[in-house]
Design a protein around this nucleic acid. Sequence first.
DNA 1: CCCTAGGGATACTA
DNA 2: ACTCGTCCCTAGGG
Length: 475
Amino acid sequence: MGIDGLLTFVRSASSEVHISKFAGQRVAIDASSWLHRGAFSCARELALGQETDRYLRFPLRMIAMLRSHCVEPVLVFDGAKLPMKVRTDRLRSAARSAALQRAHREQRDKDFTDSITVTPAMADRLLRKLRESDTAFVVAPYEADAQMVFLVEHGHCAAAITEDSDLLAFRCPRTIYKLSPETGYCRLHSFDDLCHATDSSGSLLFDDWQSWKTGLFTDMCILSGCDYLPSIPGVGLKTAHAALSTHRSMQRAISALHDKFIWSKAQSADPAGRAELLQLTSEHLELCTMCQQIFKYATVWDPVSAALVPLHQLGTSLDIRDRDRLGPLMAPSDAKLLCEDGVLDPTSLQLYPTVEQSTASMPKREDVRSRFFDAVCPRVNTAACEPSSISIVQQNVVRRETAESALPLNEGAVAPCETDTFLYSAGVRSPMHFKAFHVPLSDEAKTAAFESAHLFAIDSPPCLGDAFLQRFRGI
DNA sequence: CCCTAGGGATACTA
DNA sequence: ACTCGTCCCTAGGG
């Protein structure tokens, strides 16, 4: 989805080029989008759970095409889901499963293709092919978009190839859209060229480009509705652009839009109702600020320092809950296995099943065991379980009662936060069944663990966008 | 009049 | 026991 209509909105500032323009350079590739397109060739098989790997053909052909023009690809894979994106993800997966049900009933081709979903297992298959052919890749800890922007900004890649307009919201210096598999022609968006963007009448869209470049452009994307936050119903790109053009700040633009789209609808509101509207406005501003942070400081993998870092340098230290929204950090050893080696499933942080079986490519057991696990549970009896099966896991449902219950000797750790939504957990996976052990952690211990870049696991927080929209509709 | 939101066609393969 | 669409056209609202 990305930003609805953004690419056509700024089309005047883009240019048609041939991919050979980047000959002799590396480009970052959005691997998921290629896997998605490849999956159309075998939609029915995938939907019915039949064994196939035809979805690999398209990405492999695209890689060959790039190399034929002396362009070296770096494939970037998606990582775990950001908590603020759960609203979008739920909508998508609901639509897919509905299509799948229709497909089973009616056997229509369209329903099969609509039900297509790219799974981590498919990404794993592609990763194996990439290792065989010596093709570079990175697995993003979270959003592939942010990871690609990091690679371009730090000179590892000359440009990013994708279909997702979010890269512009992330302010990617050079983004390539609509790369043709046959001809190699594509559409290049250079971020700094946006200063020349015009509307249909020919007047400049972004007057005083410097202020748009440093923030207002991303603010416009957020206000018009992005994957992390829906817009005020009735507000799209043009309206967001107009509001920011005149008011020149997110805060003033929001209050102006609320005046126009919300307050005017509730003219008859009593004093209590007006207070609630005021509250709604300030809540919306807060949500938009969170989005600003994600677009600026999303967690990415730095291949040079081999560590998880924010996309841009953090100016100030963030509150721990704000920090978690950008993508929780994890144990350094796990981060390397996930992002550089590509042998972990991003959401479970477990080894891909088939990797576990082939001992040849299996990492050393010491690497798999998390240092966080040792730090939090020094008394754990590791001999009681297989060392290779110890790993940090993200625990979906851990109740406070469980966490505060008495704690036998060889048990792991979990610390509930004030909200019960952000949890710190370590677990042990035995070959037969999963067991998670819990101990309460003090606030100091949580902060200490965080600062030493150890693991955080998060449960799904409430859908922030939903709450906002529901209250809006209630007016 | 302009803008947003939603529906329909469409992708992939040799 | 499973991760992301997009373009074009039009109806309908402000």
